[in-house]
Nucleic acid binder design. Structure first.
Lengths: 108, 108
DNA sequence: CTATATTCCCGGCAATGTCGAGAAAATGAG
DNA sequence: CTCATTTTCTCGACATTGCCGGGAATATAG
C-alpha cells in the first residue's frame, strides 16, 4: 500500500525537474541544500534515488567522462512520467491543505 | 538528529491550523481525507499526533461530554509555537524548491 | 604508477507511516 | 439499573522512508 511520496522524495523529484539533464547525485544534493538550507548527506540522496528508480519514478544513465580533474562517471537521473504524476498528486494534496491560509503558511 | 517534518506530519499540523478549536482525532482525519483525497486510517492519525506531542509540537486537552449519542470524550489538539515554527520551515523549504516552476508543479 | 579529486554504493539503524484489533467512555432504550 | 449502540481513542506490530558513515570505483595530473 504505497500511498504517498515522502517529503525527501518530493524534494528529490523537484530537483530533477529543476536540473533537467544536469541532474546527478552531487548537483541534486547541492540544489536541495541551497534551496532548502538543510544539509543533506550524499548517502541520503543516492539511497532515495535508488528507491525511486525501483518504483519506476525515475530512470538513470551513465554519462561520458568529462575533462575535469578526477572522478567517476556521472550517473544522470531523469523524472519518468509515473514519477511526475506522483509528484503532482503529492503537491496537489499539500496545496489542498494550505489553500486559503495566511501567506506565511500558504504555499504561494 | 530529527531534521525535518515528515509529509503526514505536515498534513496533521496543517489540519490543526485549519480546524482551530474543533481539532480532534476524527475531525482531523476527515479534513485530511476530504482535502487530499487520500484515505487515512484513524490509527495513523492518533499515532502521529502522539509523536508530535512528544516533540512538543502539539498539545492536547480532554473535552467535556457532548449531547451526541455516544462516544468517548474528545481529545482536542492545539498547535504549539514550536510546531508552528517547524511547519513554516518545512513549507518554506518546499516553496524554495517549487518556486518558478510550471503552475501544475509550483505550490501556488 | 601514485596521488588526488570526484562520484557513487551500501549496510544498518532511526524515524515515520500504516493497519487492525480492540478498549473506553458516553447516551438511550427497555 | 443494565444492555446495546455509537463514537472516540489506544496500542502493538510491521512496512517504508530518512539518514549517516565508511568506503569503493574511476577519472585526470604529475
Amino acid at each position: 500500500m504505497p500511498n504517498a511520496l515522502g517529503e525527501f522524495e518530493q524534494l528529490i523529484l523537484l530537483a530533477l525537474v529543476r536540473l533537467g539533464d544536469d541532474a546527478y547525485g552531487v548537483s541534486i544534493q547541492a540544489e536541495i541544500a541551497r534551496r532548502t538550507r538543510r544539509d543533506v548527506g550524499p548517502g541520503a540522496v543516492y539511497k532515495t534515488l535508488l528507491r525511486l528508480e525501483e518504483k519506476g519514478f525515475v530512470s538513470s544513465w551513465l554519462g561520458e567522462p568529462t575533462r575535469r580533474r578526477g572522478g567517476r562517471r556521472k550517473k544522470h537521473y531523469r523524472l519518468e512520467p509515473a514519477g511526475a504524476l506522483e509528484l503532482r498528486r503529492s503537491l496537489a494534496a499539500l496545496r489542498g491543505m494550505t489553500r486559503g491560509l495566511t501567506p506565511t503558511l500558504e504555499l504561494q
